[in-house]
Design a binder for these strands. Sequence first.
DNA 1: CGCTATATTTTCGAAAACGAACATTTGATT
DNA 2: AATCAAATGTTCGTTTTCGAAAATATAGCG
Lengths: 252, 252
Amino acid sequence: MNQTQRHEKIVGLIKQHGFMSIDDLVSACEVTPQTIRRDLNQLAENGVVSRYHGGAGLNRSWENTPYQERKTQNSEVKEKIAEAVAAMIPDGASLFINIGTTTELIATKLLNHKNLHVVTNNIHVATILSAKEDFSVIIAAGEVRYRDGGIIGEATCDFISQFRMDYGIIGISGISSDGALLDFDFREVKVSQAILEHTQHVILAADYSKFERRAMVEQGHISQVDCLVCDKTPPPSIVKIIKENNITFVEA
Amino acid sequence: MNQTQRHEKIVGLIKQHGFMSIDDLVSACEVTPQTIRRDLNQLAENGVVSRYHGGAGLNRSWENTPYQERKTQNSEVKEKIAEAVAAMIPDGASLFINIGTTTELIATKLLNHKNLHVVTNNIHVATILSAKEDFSVIIAAGEVRYRDGGIIGEATCDFISQFRMDYGIIGISGISSDGALLDFDFREVKVSQAILEHTQHVILAADYSKFERRAMVEQGHISQVDCLVCDKTPPPSIVKIIKENNITFVEA
DNA sequence: CGCTATATTTTCGAAAACGAACATTTGATT
DNA sequence: AATCAAATGTTCGTTTTCGAAAATATAGCG
């Protein structure tokens, strides 16, 4: 095995395991620790891997795609919201889960449930939940949006309209002061509308920052929602709408 | 932040990044290196993470789910096959990619291509390829099989039948000596048949072990394939069929 | 064959990380 | 307020890893 082959092997192993110690790589490649060090340093110089004391791991900059980065924002707040939402879902329920980093987090919190039937247009949610043998996970068809793994388009709506589920878990890009639910992509809006229409209990997961964000496309109105989960009490105008429409408010 | 919270945070960070150095965790948690060491050692004792000199990474045993394990089998052979297949696909092509660990590997090898249009029923392929902005990735609808992320069922077939692609890349569970293509799940077979029927050039990626494996469901016949990519020359009976049907054989 | 360039191992002092022991803080209980 | 236990910070000697440099092996070439 020459140097190039070894480098490829090392990169492969690191990608596979996330991290490889010098010792591990020594056994895997059957060369001296010093050689491995030289290899790792070279690979680290080229930005392929990240060098650590004792081994090397995946390069940080690779993971920090815009999407992954966004995923870590507000993680503490979102985690609480996600847990609160997950707690509302009983075992054996059927539910829609749509696009959004918050909804993905909710998916991870649902892994301790049993026998859930899930329909989603979020490829990451599908991946997360398909790890459970007792779940049935159904994914909608359509084009996969590169930045967040969302599946959108007409085919997606048609597909979703075939179902009628117990719960619909939706995230949102923004909520205006008059209670309009806003998003950036009209194709995503179509999908969310389809979910709203085919669900018995709609749960909207939104951290407080959503009340301060503007987005272009109107997706619906908060009155269509049965339950709002948020980290703080929403602005007064929203609270008023919530009361008028008998929406359950859960503060995570 | 108390110990439990910190532990959760640490595990989360490690899962997210694959590896975290002591220093990184010190900055993230704002405690002493020694505390982080204690935390990591505790977590490692409980088998949650793997301790390394300088930090901690994902626990090896967690990754080795049956699926992940299978994924690493024959990796060298499969990798060569995957590279050979990827080399056959021109930029800008449209292609089907179906279920299978080999086809997933092919997907990773396609990441250096440009402007591909991909339709797939493999959730992992979709995830891999959706990372590229210039690809259009379309995923079929249907139930997600928990063990390998494959999407199968009638809806999947219907969806696939809407397309007509340049290339179809298919894997297979087994090939009998009379050239029959075999699989274990009849629903998957339906999908593969749909792909075969709506593709101009069918590429079958199969390592030699497939010629020795039995499977229950007949999916089609090798004569329907335009190109076979394998690591070795197939058994004589298959070679004969290949020649009779003018199938291109590529030895990776 | 000898020469040269590259890759690898060997060696060794410096730097980093480690864990044990002890001091300090925190938080709960009485 | 006093007390105790658990968690965290501090210190320091030990172990591990690091990287530079020298020695050895390998391959290509005239």
